[in-house]
Simulated assay, not measured.
Amino acid sequence: MTVFDDQVRVRAERARQVALFRYRLIQDVIDVRLTSRERGVLATVIADREHDGPFGEKITVSRPTIDRWCRWWRRDGFAGLVPQPAQVRPRTPAEVLDMAAGLKRENLARTATQIARILRASTGWSPSERTLQRHFERLELYAPAPSGPAQTEVFGRFEADRPWHA
Protein backbone atom coordinates (compact mmCIF):
# COMPACT_ATOMS: atom_id res chain seq x y z
CA MET A 1 0.00 0.00 0.00
CA THR A 2 1.42 3.38 -0.99
CA VAL A 3 1.38 6.53 1.12
CA PHE A 4 -1.26 7.95 -1.22
CA ASP A 5 -3.50 4.88 -0.72
CA ASP A 6 -3.09 5.21 3.03
CA GLN A 7 -4.12 8.89 2.88
CA VAL A 8 -7.21 7.97 0.85
CA ARG A 9 -8.14 5.37 3.47
CA VAL A 10 -7.71 7.87 6.32
CA ARG A 11 -9.83 10.47 4.50
CA ALA A 12 -12.59 7.91 3.91
CA GLU A 13 -12.58 6.97 7.61
CA ARG A 14 -12.76 10.63 8.66
CA ALA A 15 -15.66 11.19 6.23
CA ARG A 16 -17.47 8.21 7.78
CA GLN A 17 -16.95 9.66 11.27
CA VAL A 18 -18.43 12.99 10.11
CA ALA A 19 -21.45 11.18 8.61
CA LEU A 20 -21.99 9.29 11.88
CA PHE A 21 -21.85 12.58 13.81
CA ARG A 22 -24.39 14.14 11.46
CA TYR A 23 -26.68 11.14 11.81
CA ARG A 24 -26.45 11.23 15.63
CA LEU A 25 -27.60 14.85 15.56
CA ILE A 26 -30.55 14.38 13.20
CA GLN A 27 -31.71 10.88 14.14
CA ASP A 28 -34.58 12.18 16.29
CA VAL A 29 -35.52 14.89 13.80
CA ILE A 30 -35.94 12.42 10.91
CA ASP A 31 -38.38 10.22 12.86
CA VAL A 32 -41.43 9.83 10.58
CA ARG A 33 -43.82 9.68 13.55
CA LEU A 34 -43.16 13.37 14.36
CA THR A 35 -45.30 16.14 12.98
CA SER A 36 -43.57 18.93 11.08
CA ARG A 37 -44.10 21.28 14.04
CA GLU A 38 -42.47 18.79 16.46
CA ARG A 39 -39.67 18.29 13.99
CA GLY A 40 -39.07 22.05 13.78
CA VAL A 41 -39.00 22.48 17.56
CA LEU A 42 -36.59 19.58 17.96
CA ALA A 43 -34.28 20.94 15.23
CA THR A 44 -34.24 24.33 16.95
CA VAL A 45 -33.35 22.72 20.29
CA ILE A 46 -30.49 20.82 18.65
CA ALA A 47 -29.24 24.01 16.96
CA ASP A 48 -29.25 25.90 20.27
CA ARG A 49 -26.88 23.46 21.96
CA GLU A 50 -23.16 22.81 21.71
CA HIS A 51 -22.21 19.26 20.66
CA ASP A 52 -19.11 17.09 20.85
CA GLY A 53 -17.89 16.95 17.26
CA PRO A 54 -16.73 13.83 15.45
CA PHE A 55 -13.13 14.41 16.57
CA GLY A 56 -13.77 15.65 20.12
CA GLU A 57 -14.05 19.39 19.51
CA LYS A 58 -17.09 21.45 20.54
CA ILE A 59 -19.38 22.30 17.62
CA THR A 60 -22.55 24.31 17.14
CA VAL A 61 -24.72 23.56 14.14
CA SER A 62 -27.19 26.05 12.67
CA ARG A 63 -30.84 25.25 12.07
CA PRO A 64 -30.49 25.54 8.25
CA THR A 65 -27.62 23.02 8.39
CA ILE A 66 -29.76 20.55 10.35
CA ASP A 67 -32.56 20.99 7.82
CA ARG A 68 -30.10 20.44 4.95
CA TRP A 69 -28.76 17.24 6.56
CA CYS A 70 -32.33 15.99 6.99
CA ARG A 71 -33.03 16.63 3.28
CA TRP A 72 -29.84 14.78 2.33
CA TRP A 73 -30.88 11.86 4.56
CA ARG A 74 -34.35 11.65 2.99
CA ARG A 75 -32.89 11.83 -0.53
CA ASP A 76 -29.82 9.54 -0.26
CA GLY A 77 -29.88 7.82 3.15
CA PHE A 78 -26.64 7.52 5.11
CA ALA A 79 -24.55 8.08 1.96
CA GLY A 80 -26.04 11.57 1.71
CA LEU A 81 -24.47 12.50 5.06
CA VAL A 82 -20.95 11.48 4.01
CA PRO A 83 -18.97 14.58 2.97
CA GLN A 84 -17.84 14.40 -0.62
CA PRO A 85 -14.16 14.92 -1.39
CA ALA A 86 -13.29 18.18 -3.06
CA GLN A 87 -13.56 17.99 -6.84
CA VAL A 88 -10.34 19.79 -7.65
CA ARG A 89 -9.03 19.61 -11.17
CA PRO A 90 -5.26 19.36 -11.41
CA ARG A 91 -3.65 22.62 -12.41
CA THR A 92 -0.49 21.03 -13.74
CA PRO A 93 -0.90 19.28 -17.09
CA ALA A 94 -0.49 15.51 -16.87
CA GLU A 95 2.03 15.55 -19.74
CA VAL A 96 4.38 17.80 -17.76
CA LEU A 97 4.14 15.57 -14.68
CA ASP A 98 4.74 12.49 -16.84
CA MET A 99 7.82 14.12 -18.35
CA ALA A 100 9.09 15.04 -14.87
CA ALA A 101 8.55 11.47 -13.64
CA GLY A 102 10.41 10.14 -16.67
CA LEU A 103 13.35 12.44 -15.94
CA LYS A 104 13.38 11.29 -12.32
CA ARG A 105 13.20 7.59 -13.28
CA GLU A 106 16.06 8.14 -15.72
CA ASN A 107 18.27 9.34 -12.86
CA LEU A 108 16.87 8.95 -9.33
CA ALA A 109 19.62 11.20 -7.94
CA ARG A 110 18.15 14.22 -9.77
CA THR A 111 16.53 16.72 -7.48
CA ALA A 112 13.22 18.48 -8.08
CA THR A 113 15.16 21.71 -8.66
CA GLN A 114 17.26 20.09 -11.39
CA ILE A 115 14.19 18.59 -13.04
CA ALA A 116 12.38 21.95 -12.91
CA ARG A 117 15.39 23.56 -14.61
CA ILE A 118 15.35 20.90 -17.35
CA LEU A 119 11.61 21.35 -17.89
CA ARG A 120 11.96 25.14 -18.13
CA ALA A 121 14.76 24.76 -20.68
CA SER A 122 12.82 22.27 -22.83
CA THR A 123 9.22 23.52 -22.55
CA GLY A 124 9.61 27.10 -21.34
CA TRP A 125 7.61 26.41 -18.15
CA SER A 126 7.82 24.22 -15.09
CA PRO A 127 5.70 23.57 -12.01
CA SER A 128 7.21 24.54 -8.66
CA GLU A 129 9.85 22.33 -7.10
CA ARG A 130 7.45 21.47 -4.26
CA THR A 131 4.81 20.31 -6.75
CA LEU A 132 7.39 18.03 -8.33
CA GLN A 133 8.48 16.73 -4.91
CA ARG A 134 4.88 15.86 -3.98
CA HIS A 135 4.44 14.13 -7.34
CA PHE A 136 7.59 12.06 -6.79
CA GLU A 137 6.40 11.14 -3.28
CA ARG A 138 3.07 9.93 -4.70
CA LEU A 139 4.92 7.80 -7.25
CA GLU A 140 7.43 6.66 -4.60
CA LEU A 141 10.39 7.88 -6.66
CA TYR A 142 13.10 8.34 -4.07
CA ALA A 143 16.78 9.08 -4.51
CA PRO A 144 19.03 6.12 -3.73
CA ALA A 145 20.56 6.08 -0.26
CA PRO A 146 24.08 7.52 -0.14
CA SER A 147 26.77 4.87 -0.16
CA GLY A 148 30.53 4.64 0.01
CA PRO A 149 33.10 5.21 2.74
CA ALA A 150 32.95 9.02 2.60
CA GLN A 151 29.25 8.93 3.52
CA THR A 152 29.58 6.50 6.41
CA GLU A 153 32.71 7.97 8.01
CA VAL A 154 32.01 9.52 11.41
CA PHE A 155 34.00 12.41 12.83
CA GLY A 156 34.33 13.34 16.50
CA ARG A 157 33.35 16.74 17.74
CA PHE A 158 35.84 19.57 17.95
CA GLU A 159 37.45 20.22 21.33
CA ALA A 160 39.94 23.00 21.89
CA ASP A 161 43.24 22.22 23.62
CA ARG A 162 43.01 25.40 25.64
CA PRO A 163 40.57 28.30 25.96
CA TRP A 164 40.76 30.97 23.28
CA HIS A 165 41.24 34.60 24.35
CA ALA A 166 41.03 37.59 22.05
Results as ranks from 00 to 15, higher is better:
residue 49 R to V: 04
residue 84 Q to M: 11
residue 71 R to Y: 08
residue 74 R to G: 06
residue 89 R to V: 15
residue 27 Q to G: 07
residue 96 V to Q: 01
residue 23 Y to S: 00
residue 60 T to F: 01
residue 112 A to I: 09
residue 99 M to G: 08
residue 44 T to I: 07
residue 117 R to C: 09
residue 28 D to R: 13
residue 46 I to V: 11
residue 93 P to F: 02
residue 35 T to W: 00
residue 129 E to W: 10
residue 42 L to W: 01
residue 40 G to R: 05
residue 100 A to R: 03
residue 114 Q to K: 08
residue 121 A to S: 09
residue 20 L to T: 10
residue 104 K to A: 01
residue 98 D to L: 08
residue 55 F to C: 09
residue 122 S to M: 07
residue 118 I to N: 05
residue 127 P to R: 07
residue 37 R to S: 11
residue 57 E to I: 03
residue 42 L to F: 01
residue 42 L to Q: 01
residue 107 N to Y: 07
residue 94 A to N: 08
residue 57 E to S: 15
residue 114 Q to I: 05
residue 106 E to D: 12
residue 95 E to D: 15
residue 83 P to C: 01
residue 71 R to Q: 10
residue 107 N to T: 11
residue 71 R to D: 12
residue 129 E to S: 12
residue 89 R to T: 15
residue 66 I to N: 00
residue 86 A to P: 15
residue 99 M to T: 14
residue 22 R to M: 05
residue 116 A to Q: 10
residue 130 R to L: 14
residue 40 G to S: 08
residue 18 V to A: 10
residue 66 I to V: 06
residue 96 V to K: 01
residue 41 V to S: 03
residue 117 R to H: 10
residue 92 T to G: 07
residue 70 C to N: 03
residue 95 E to L: 13
residue 125 W to F: 13
residue 117 R to S: 12
residue 108 L to F: 03
residue 62 S to E: 06
residue 122 S to K: 09
residue 52 D to Y: 09
residue 71 R to C: 09
residue 103 L to P: 08
residue 117 R to Q: 13
residue 81 L to C: 02
residue 107 N to K: 12
residue 118 I to D: 06
residue 55 F to N: 13
residue 48 D to K: 04
residue 16 R to I: 06
residue 24 R to F: 08
residue 95 E to Q: 14
residue 40 G to C: 04
residue 121 A to V: 00
residue 85 P to E: 14
residue 97 L to S: 01
residue 104 K to V: 04
residue 51 H to S: 00
residue 70 C to H: 05
residue 124 G to I: 07
residue 101 A to N: 03
residue 104 K to F: 05
residue 123 T to P: 04
residue 125 W to C: 13
residue 71 R to W: 10
residue 50 E to K: 09
residue 87 Q to N: 15
residue 81 L to P: 04
residue 55 F to R: 14
residue 24 R to T: 15
residue 127 P to M: 04
residue 44 T to C: 10
residue 18 V to R: 10
residue 50 E to R: 11
residue 99 M to W: 13
residue 114 Q to T: 04
residue 61 V to K: 02
residue 57 E to N: 13
residue 120 R to C: 09
residue 118 I to W: 00
